[in-house]
Design a protein around this nucleic acid. Structure first.
Lengths: 203, 203
DNA sequence: AATCGTTTTAAACATTGTTTAAAACAAGTA
DNA sequence: TACTTGTTTTAAACAATGTTTAAAACGATT
């Protein structure tokens, strides 16, 4: 049996917090060990290396946060309502974990060559159903014919980027944390309307 | 006189390339010295520390790339034409330096607490003229009344974020470098039209 | 209480950013 | 030339990093 309740989990939790807060490369193993209250070498005992620990944490974060989003995309909601729900849930999720975007961005830059092998990433890719829906509505004439890749990128950009530049936005507008939250809250209405507007046939 | 042509510049150039490519924290001083063909200790002789060298490089990159953008924002172009030019020039600039966005994103996460003191950043803030223009056009009824902060964030998001997730977009769509360039090229028309559309009075 | 596999520990290792003190150099001065 | 002065370069050492190792401590089974 384990001597203490669950050493592996303690390492995992401490590292998750530190990685999100300070970034992987600026978090030392000794810092993780100290926060978890364990011996330095136990990190290498349970996870083979710091990089391996990071991979595990990254996978967990992506999986935990992407499942509900994928469910919405693959649901049989109407297109406009689906867009509204997706944006709403996505922004709420990032509001709960505002460091997630910057963290993922940093990772995309940091491990560019390893992206393809990071299985967790591909779980974000299930847009087939959503893509088909846009194309069909286009054929029916209910919306403008739209490049689905562009549209999805537009949607992700409007949702996620503001979190990545949170510091800049707060600094420039002298926002408090509450004011930034309010700003983000407003985007839950604004972004879907903007996206839907861009889909409606030209008047 | 300097023994070799310009050691300081050689360090600066080598570090710039490596920082953009691999990120600051994953670039060692010995690697910089090796690439620049100089002794290890010269980095600390010319720049006081690696962090200091990074600050100098970051300032240079921001200044070099932001001047033309600020000029456009403060010009007396009509609003729609100004938006078209801004997006066009910005995307061209990022196309020439596609690692810039990820680099800046990583920095925003990495040095969150130092952002305010990074003077270079504030040079991106000169949006007063642009903001005033949007408000005035709104009053005149030429466009919808729009929250200027939201609009500027929308614009930046649609311009910059696709570069940050370049790897994902290429991976998902099996894009070659050329195809990604073409994709980005298309956004130079798409993004301004989407933004302008969102400003036009509801039909 | 003896044994076995698992978990934890302290110590050492190579590599990182940084500092130091001496050497090498260019330019001016006698 | 020979000598001095200030700048630039060098090699070596430093503390801190991620990692490995071998031994100790532990819990469970016999």
């Amino acid at each position: 049996m384990a001597r203490s309740k669950n050493t592996e989990q303690k390492i995992f939790d401490a590292a998750t917090e530190l990685f999100l807060e300070k970034g992987v490369d600026r978090t030392s193993v000794r810092e993780i060990a100290s926060k978890a209250g364990i011996n330095l070498a136990l990190m290498n005992y349970y996870f083979r290396s710091k990089e391996n620990l990071f991979d595990a944490i990254f996978s967990m974060l992506v999986k935990k946060n992407s499942e509900e989003l994928i469910r919405i995309l693959n649901s049989d909601l109407g297109l406009f309502e689906k867009i509204r729900q997706y944006v709403h849930v996505y922004i709420d999720m990032l509001s709960d974990n505002p460091l997630l975007v910057s963290f993922v961005m940093a990772i995309l830059h940091r491990s560019r060559e390893r992206i393809t092998e990071m299985k967790a990433i591909s779980s974000l890719y299930s847009t087939d159903q959503f893509t088909k829906q846009i194309l069909e509505e286009g054929k029916k004439g209910n919306i403008r014919r739209t490049d689905t890749t562009h549209f999805f990128v537009d949607m992700l950009s409007l949702i996620a980027f503001p979190f990545a530049i949170k510091t800049l936005v707060m600094d420039k507008n002298s926002f408090s944390e509450e004011e930034f939250s309010e700003f983000i809250h407003e985007r839950k209405e604004r972004v879907p309307e903007m996206l839907i507007e861009s889909l409606k046939p030209r008047s």
